[in-house]
Write a protein that binds this DNA or RNA. Structure first.
Lengths: 192, 192, 192, 192
DNA sequence: AATGAATGAGAATTCATTCAT
DNA sequence: AATGAATGAATTCTCATTCAT
């Protein structure tokens, strides 16, 4: 209950402007109670992605079931990424506009809980290279970075524009560009 | 002097945690003086990119001089983008970790001063399409978004990792991937 | 305790010049504590007459017990009014020199709490008219206004002169003039 | 020009909330210029009634010309008093709601400039006593105080009620009550 | 385990006044 | 005489955190 309330409140305002008292009210507990479960405001803040990342990864796994071919997996990955944040706009705001740019978060333990997720991306890219679909002349880590960078950017833009358009709108075009960028340029390897 | 001091201070802390009094001290003026030139703390904050964007655009223009071919321009654009933020890490922190992610900034007038710069990116992409180098099946705005998204992401990551590695490190690989992603897949159109 | 401290402090200075920190010190609480009980400085300020008016009315009621005849009641009313402010000079200063003259106060809810008191004055005047003592050719509201106006003025003058003379000094003469002004001019009605 | 601007500005806000810069703007001079003519904000504030009182007394004198009988003079005095403040509501606000309750004003030199005016009231009352119209058993100073107190109260109430009704409305009834209060009760002395 | 009253540090902003030009 | 840029003191209010109950 506390975490759910925290997501609601943190997503409305900045971390700084969100108040423990409002979170307590929404969670129907006393302020002091929050401090029984979380060391301080920041700890509560960082506890949010722990939960949400688990949720994301579990669902992602299901969506990737029975899909073959790295590019198809990548397309699905991109689709689900955008879909997930479309469905969780409050969490999106908190993660993208607050946490992602916080140095303290980047150093926190919680940050590592995102690893489950970034590892998945890495796995698919490596698979693609082994299949001979994805170019091997570029470092996998760089590739992953670019792909995730684009996705984060798409979500961030959508949030900053007030979530007024459909986040999925450009999904297929973006997918196409990304997949294309990762492929070899000549048909030969591609057709393999 | 005030703006210079503001960049220094805002880059060390959050907007919230940066204090006018510290900025005043660094700028060697009284606190009140700042309020003669800027309506409030936020106005001072938003005045920073105004100046810096001008500087960026002016220099970018020089660097693009005498370069022909959209892809070469894009490579230069990417290079200069990373180079500029490498040389202005304090501004980078302020822009990428604070402003870029602020709804108030996205709605501010200052935000529009960035247009000079994003317009330049658009121009090059269109040029590339006319030259027949860049694929025409994807919307120019989406292309621009992806490219700028990747660049922002590279800088942001670097900042969050404590600027411990060389931001330029992956410049050429990233350029390559981007340029590749924007090209047609078969040699025919490319050679046109 | 907070209200008591507030009366002391507000009576020394203007509302503007009175500081929350001084009130907190005098009340032996932290500044923040004041804000748990009063929304802001103004709310605390306006809370003062709420309490004091209650006190005034309760005592007034006792003093009027067993007194018969509207004029005797009026004399007692005048006497107690002056006596009360003589005994509460700090509250007098706050009420007469600050609140009475503040538009924000005139519009506040608290202002209405004074009604208990002004209603009492009206009641006595009406009683006097029914008894045939007080002239009926002048509106009761105007009569009340004049009487209260005179009383406020007496207290205000006393305060402005530094409370150096005895506020009760002119009590009987003023009473006499007022009572006389309210009576019919010829003996006939008076003796009725 | 400065004083005229000052009246406008001070009448809109509290003394505290009125700013020199706004007065300067309205007077079309620089802030510094004000300090060439007035030692400080308070001196400027207190300079206002100096001028206005002169104006008031001069006109009052004219209105009293050729009027005979103390009661007629008193009626005229009351009438002109209310009329003057009705016509000068901005000054009324400044004088009644700010100055009249300021201890600093009560001690200032300017306060004495009001003496011209209060002396006039005294003169009329004494005249009335000599004529045998006004009771001699009450001190002239008390009488004056009551009369002026009532008038100040009428104006103050009107201001606090937002000047929404006609200040002159109750003029004749109030005059009547006052004159009556000052008279002897039996016909004998009155007719003397 | 839960509460919630009390705490008190911390910061933006205003504006009267000065004084070099 | 007029200017107006610079000053910097001074104060309200917020809110994370504690701890006795």
């Amino acid at each position: 209950m506390i975490i759910r309330a925290a997501i609601e409140v943190f997503s409305k305002n900045t971390f700084q402007k969100s108040s423990i008292s409002e979170i307590a009210q929404r969670a129907n507990v006393a302020e002091g109670t929050i401090y029984q479960y979380f060391k301080n405001k920041e700890a509560l803040f960082f506890a949010i992605p722990d939960e949400k990342t688990k949720e994301f990864c579990k669902e992602l796994e299901l969506h990737l079931q029975s899909i073959t071919g790295a590019f198809n997996k990548i397309r699905k990955f991109i689709w689900y990424y955008l879909y997930f944040f479309k469905m969780n706009p409050e969490y999106a705001r908190t993660l993208m506009l607050e946490m992602r740019v916080s140095k303290r978060f980047a150093k926190s333990k919680t940050y590592k809980s995102l690893k489950t997720f970034t590892d998945k991306a890495l796995e698919i890219i490596k698979e693609g290279q082994e299949e001979g679909l994805i170019r091997k002349d570029v470092d996998v880590y760089i590739i992953r970075q670019l792909v995730l960078g684009i996705l984060e950017h798409l979500v961030t833009r959508w949030l900053l524009k007030g979530e007024k358009y459909d986040l999925m709108k450009d999904c297929s075009e973006a997918s196409e560009l990304i997949v294309h960028g990762l492929s070899y340029s000549d048909g030969i390897q591609k057709s393999r």
